[in-house]
């Protein structure tokens, strides 16, 4: 077991994969916490599903499995889906949840149609596009991983640059407008960052579970702090931890998909936070309430004694 672990840790490719998934975890944790506060977490889910037709279209048009081209296709349809959702909400009586659900399933269905077309092309059989559905980080190689790590690093950098503006926009949109910030542009920028994070992560986590990487670390981090900047850091750390743990588990076991293990790790971190976080954790709150009750009872007892003592005097 030890030897196996050592072998994995010192293998150059695995190291790259680990760095890649770690950076991905940080990027999606950071963007996910802003999305969570803006109540846009499930848009990430829709975007991830909607990336499938883009990947297939890019493959059909270019005829090769170059990750860069595929990711551009995924970004296109992902953005299109995000705009479709906002357009349907703003110009009809359909509510947000139904719009998200509708766009998600129709785009994914269209993606499945294209996927069957892809598998009929001569080169499509072994294209491994299926891997995009559940993610297979362990099978990533060389340049693909570097692309993923680089893109994730760029995303983190851009978010850091416009962090102040995003913060104002998230908590007080009308104030942001009053300050003269270009709110439309910022909205567009944030949505594009979110789409980019999802698209970058698809390779490792897969289209269906990518939403978890945006939502779960962020909601876990929410238990630890009330400040946005701290929440973003904690969420980034949780994302990185889940990414690394998931990758390690799926590398050790033969043929295990990466995405599900990343999600299970993230959920475990979330449960721990929900129960044991200082101040807001359920168990911590319960312990505090018990201590408080005890204190109250003792005070009451003391008061009672005092009063009775008073009476005697």
């Amino acid at each position: 077991m030890n030897d196996l672990l050592k072998m994995i840790l010192f293998d150059a490719n695995t190291q790259w994969v680990l760095i890649g998934t770690m950076l991905l975890g940080v990027a999606s944790g950071v963007l996910g916490s802003i999305a969570l506060l803006r109540k846009q977490s499930l848009i990430g889910d829709a975007v991830a599903h909607a990336a499938l037709p883009g990947i297939c279209i890019a493959f059909l048009l270019s005829g090769e499995k170059s990750l860069f081209v595929l990711l551009i296709g995924a970004t296109m349809t992902g953005l299109l889906a995000a705009y479709c959702i906002q357009f349907i909400i703003s110009s009809s009586i359909i509510k947000e949840d139904a719009a998200i659900c509708l766009v998600l399933s129709v785009f994914f269905g269209f993606g499945i149609v294209l996927l069957t077309k892809v598998s009929q092309t001569p080169s499509g059989n072994k294209s491994g596009l299926d891997d995009f559905i559940f993610g297979q980080a362990a099978s990533l190689v060389g340049n693909d991983v570097k692309l993923m790590a680089g893109a994730a690093a760029v995303l983190i950098f851009i978010t850091a640059l416009i962090f102040k503006e995003l913060k104002v926009l998230t908590f007080d949109p009308s104030f942001a407008k009053g300050l003269g910030l270009p709110t439309g542009l910022l909205n567009f920028l944030f949505l594009s960052l979110l789409v980019a994070a999802v698209v970058v992560g698809i390779q490792a986590v897969g289209v269906i579970l990518m939403a978890a990487l945006l939502i779960t670390p962020a909601i876990a981090a929410r238990y630890w702090t009330n400040s946005l900047s701290k929440m973003i850091v904690i969420s980034g750390i949780f994302g990185a931890l889940s990414g690394m743990a998931g990758t390690l588990i799926s590398t050790i076991g033969e043929g295990l998909p990466t995405g599900p293990f990343i999600v299970v790790t993230a959920t475990a971190l979330f449960l721990l936070s929900m129960l044991f976080a200082p101040e807001r954790g359920l168990v911590t709150k319960w312990v505090k309430r018990m201590a408080n009750n005890k204190q109250l009872r003792r005070n009451k007892l003391l008061q009672g004694e005092k009063r009775s003592g008073f009476h005697e005097l």
């Binding site: 579970l209 978890a212 939502i215 779960t216 909601i219 599900p260 299970v264 959920t267 979330f270």
Partner: peptide, 9 residues
């Protein structure tokens, strides 16, 4: 999001 991704995973 948390519940369904976990159970699905």
């Amino acid at each position: 999001g948390v519940v369904f991704t976990f159970l699905f995973a």
